[in-house]
Design a binder for these strands. Structure first.
Ligand code: SF4
Ligand code: SF4
Lengths: 162, 162
DNA sequence: GTAAATAAGGATATTCTTTATCCTTGATTG
DNA sequence: CAATCAAGGATAAAGAATATCCTTATTTAC
């Protein structure tokens, strides 16, 4: 059970978009080049973000993506779920229904304890991601990334932002 | 990102094995029949449990599987990891290394904040599973399952336990 | 107006994982 | 000695993730 690499891509792209000045857009092409990713496939991840309403888009030259809300209002969970989907990681195939001792017509009304426990763990994972804002990430990165790299990356992006 | 169905199978099998009297074994055949699962493939899941040291095995007629330790000492996490593996659900492909502004020879020493945050969420999931014992599951099931079904299932198993 | 650049998304191909089956081996029981 | 079992290798089928290509409609810059 491994998350898609698109999750990593989307998080990195959002971190870049968070540094974009108001009203500017950054294109798929620039984001792909900056991260060394296949443009067409990265585009699918960005489309997922767009469909989830996390980013705004603009067409034409100088078009691209920007965040739809402030980084402090955007959680990791939103980004992860936009790409990975909201389905729980444990799916119940109801194998208890095959129990040969089960009385005929007996109908399990609710999910059994196994599923509930697994879903609680799933929810703990989501709750953790819900607690981290994109602004938190930017805060950490701004401290950890060497100032000259931070500055040059910012300039690289600004040159290409429409 | 969905857990393998073998996780569900392994949890259910362990729940059954937890009710087995001391010194008795239950075969793959019986476990597969009880849950309506393909015997050969379920066998792979049980082999995973065996390799992880969670169950003991015995060969020959009247052989099969039994728990290697008391249900109170067996956590959900151990069972899940035996089948699903211990690898973290977020893998870092180090895309920051492709940053065109990155100074030549600049070497990121440690995983970046994105990975660390994702790994913390992963750990929250594991911590939750670590906190649930197999005995907890049995306790809940014994309350929720209708007594006559509980009893007949127990007898069904005992008839086939070697 | 026109040409270039862009997001959106459909179609398809490739690769990897999961699921499943089959068969052999060696051990154990009765 | 015959039946039964776990272990595990080989292989196949199905499904998901990854990747590429192409078309369409829109917007910008000139
Ligand atoms: S986890 Fe419980 S409810 Fe879900 S399939 Fe298994 S037995 Fe059924
Ligand atoms: S999460 Fe951070 S460390 Fe991991 S690949 Fe992405 S940039 Fe690199």
């Amino acid at each position: 059970m491994i998350l898609k690499s698109q999750v990593e891509w989307a998080l990195h792209c959002c971190a870049i978009l968070a540094g974009l000045p108001d009203g500017r857009y950054l294109s798929t092409k620039a984001l792909a080049e900056f991260h060394g990713l296949p443009k067409e496939y990265l585009s699918k991840a960005l489309q997922s973000l767009s469909q989830a309403g996390l980013v705004d888009t603009a067409l034409g030259p100088s078009g691209g993506y920007r965040l739809a809300k402030p980084p402090a209002d955007l959680t990791f969970l939103e980004i992860v779920e936009a790409v990975e989907g909201q389905q729980r990681t444990f799916v119940c195939t109801n194998i208890r229904a095959n129990n040969p001792c089960r009385p005929k017509g007996y109908c399990e009304s609710s999910p059994c304890a196994v599923a509930r426990i697994m879903w609680e763990a799933d929810e703990a994972w989501r709750e953790k991601l819900r607690g981290v804002k994109l602004s938190d990430l930017v805060g950490i990165l701004s401290k950890e990334i060497p100032p000259e790299l931070w500055k040059s990356s910012f300039e690289w992006v600004l040159e290409r932002a429409g």
